[in-house]
């Protein structure tokens, strides 16, 4: 569905350098990115602000011409066949609107039907499906400017699906939504992916989106791909440690001398201890026994590193690498 090879995009940045002079330098927003996305996949594309996510999306949708490298999406070269591509893919920008601000939602859909030349029966069927699943019924005749953000986003997603695209690109689709709206949107997208087989590519800062929707995660920073793979693999790769949290009956000195424990963090003056341990050296069961032999245990839990943690560590690893060089 998507083939990207050695993709690079440079921008010229001007800076003030004296009274009337400007200094120019070239910055690579995307710097040698390669990846493939197969039909039917759901891929999360994450990275900090300024990492090159949106620049990549713009090149995938044909709005920006790559400085070098090749892109093929849905079998076409995006920047050369932008119109052709637009008929095959759908794009949702969380921070922009493709609906007509002053028109009722329904009229926006009618306009899109004409622009994308969707046949009347297809249009009716697809709209009916979205109206039902996304519960658009109550505000279908409300002007877009009067919709809440959650309602508008549901409208935006519908607008991008009326021409039944094979690929849906979502740029921060859940930004600014409340928990319930986010969950409803995720549920709908998950179903779209599994039932209809629509390929999803989404950028997000909300890692719950990834956890819920994307079996595959790509992490980008400073214009290069740091990691690409299933979430579970990335987790194992960056943090082989797991953490055992124990609540003790009485405060105790750090239990950092137990076998396999790599670090300890104390809370409540030593009554709660976070013991990070190497999975390949010891097991959770063995560690619990060891702890119980030293102190009276009130409660305990084994914690997997949070997805935020995994991503943060990926960034850290990259920055450490840069400093060593």
């Amino acid at each position: 569905m998507i083939e990207v090879r050695d993709l690079r995009r440079e921008f010229r940045v001007s800076e003030k350098a004296g009274f009337l002079r400007r200094a120019h330098r070239t910055v690579a927003a995307v710097d040698g990115v390669s990846f493939d996305v197969a039909a039917g996949e759901a891929v999360g594309y994450v990275g900090p602000n300024g990492a090159g996510k949106s620049t990549t999306i713009k090149m995938l949708t044909g709005i920006l011409v790559p400085t070098s490298g090749t892109v093929r999406v849905s079998g076409v070269d995006p920047s050369r066949q932008r119109k052709e591509l637009a008929r095959r893919i759908g794009v949702v920008f969380g921070q922009r609107s493709q609906l007509w601000w002053d028109l009722p939602l329904k009229d926006s859909f009618e306009l899109l039907k004409a622009i994308y030349r969707v046949s009347a029966p297809d249009f009716t069927a697809r709209l009916a499906e979205c109206v039902e699943l996304l519960e658009l019924g109550p505000f279908l005749t409300t002007p877009v400017r009067q919709l809440s953000l959650g309602q508008r986003m549901r409208g935006e997603v519908t607008a991008s699906l009326l021409h039944a695209p094979e690929l849906l690109v979502l740029d921060e689709p859940t930004i600014g939504l409340d928990l319930e709206s986010k969950e409803r949107l995720r549920e709908f997208l998950a179903e779209l992916n599994t039932k209809r087989g629509t390929t999803l590519l989404l950028t997000t800062h909300d890692l719950d989106d990834i956890q819920r929707l994307c079996p595959r995660l790509m992490v980008i920073d400073h214009g290069t791909v740091l990691a690409d793979g299933p979430l579970a693999d990335l987790r194992a790769e960056v943090s082989p440690d797991r953490v055992l949290v124990v609540d003790l009956e009485d405060a105790a000195p750090p239990l950092d001398d137990l076998p396999g424990v790599t670090s300890v963090r104390l809370e409540m003056g030593g009554k709660r201890q976070h013991l990070a341990f190497r999975r390949d050296v010891t097991t959770a069961a063995a560690l619990i026994t060891a702890v119980a032999a030293r102190a009276e245990v009130h409660d305990l839990a084994v914690v997997e590193p949070e997805i935020d943690d995994v991503v943060r560590r990926l960034y850290e690893r990259r920055h450490l690498g840069a400093e060593c060089r």
């Binding site: 949708t61 709005i63 932008r82 052709e84 591509l85 637009a86 920008f93 922009r96």
Partner: peptide
């Protein structure tokens, strides 16, 4: 504002539209 990207990825000729 950059909203022109929305106009540019539609399957139309922006000038004619």
């Amino acid at each position: 504002s950059g909203d022109v990207v929305v106009d540019l990825y539609r399957p139309w000729d922006l000038q004619q539209a």
